[in-house]
């Protein structure tokens, strides 16, 4: 299905694990270093450099863009490293996350509690992903280079619902279905 960003509460509610979704609209990139800065800002009680209300975060750091191109290749990084930062950012209004790999069980609980969704990006499909980026703007932490927070306007970025607002986890259900090895 095709969805427009920002995602509203009603849309989030109808998404189910395994749904393939094409996203169009603004995403914000943040990975390890940007998360650490946002969290220490919040801990000090200072305002964040961007409003996170309704935002979907893309755990990603792109390659540099070639001259004449809008964005370099870009793709999801491993999400589990961002797990400790999920709750404080959801409190600030984050409703979606795009990354790769499974997460700590408490992230599924948080998705349920806050009505948020975790999308699995196609790890390693960075050339195709880069082509969906139509605008790039550095929003904060420019000194972090590839790790700065960027606003990306994407058109048709393909992702899969990994954790839905019911707290169901795609990998938990699907891996069990295909597993034939006794543990």
């Amino acid at each position: 299905m095709k969805l427009t960003l920002p995602l509203d509460k009603e849309t989030l509610k109808i998404l189910r694990i395994g749904d393939t979704v094409e996203l169009t609209g603004n995403l914000y990139t943040a990975r390890d270093a940007a998360h650490e800065r946002m969290i220490s800002t919040l801990e000090k009680g200072d305002p964040l450099p961007l409003n996170l209300e309704g935002v979907t975060i893309f755990y990603a750091g792109p390659c540099p863009a070639k001259p004449g191109e809008i964005s370099g290749p870009i793709g999801p990084t491993t999400s589990v490293r961002m797990d400790p930062y999920v709750e404080p950012l959801m409190k600030e209004g984050v409703v979606g996350m795009i990354g790769k790999g499974d997460r700590s069980p408490y992230v599924a609980e948080l998705c349920k509690e806050y009505g948020a969704v975790y999308f699995l990006g196609i790890g390693g499909a960075a050339t195709l992903y880069g082509k969906t980026v139509k605008e790039v703007e550095i929003v904060a932490y420019e000194d972090l280079g590839t790790e700065s927070i960027k606003r990306l306007y994407v058109e048709g970025l393909k992702v899969i619902v990994g954790i839905d607002t019911k707290g169901r986890v795609l990998q938990d259900e699907e891996i069990a279905r295909y597993r034939t090895r006794s543990s």
Binding site: G18, K100, L120, L170, Q171, E174, Y178, R179
Partner: peptide, 8 residues
């Protein structure tokens, strides 16, 4: 049963 990108 992990499968491509871990989706099963």
């Amino acid at each position: 049963g992990i499968g491509p990108l871990g989706v099963g």
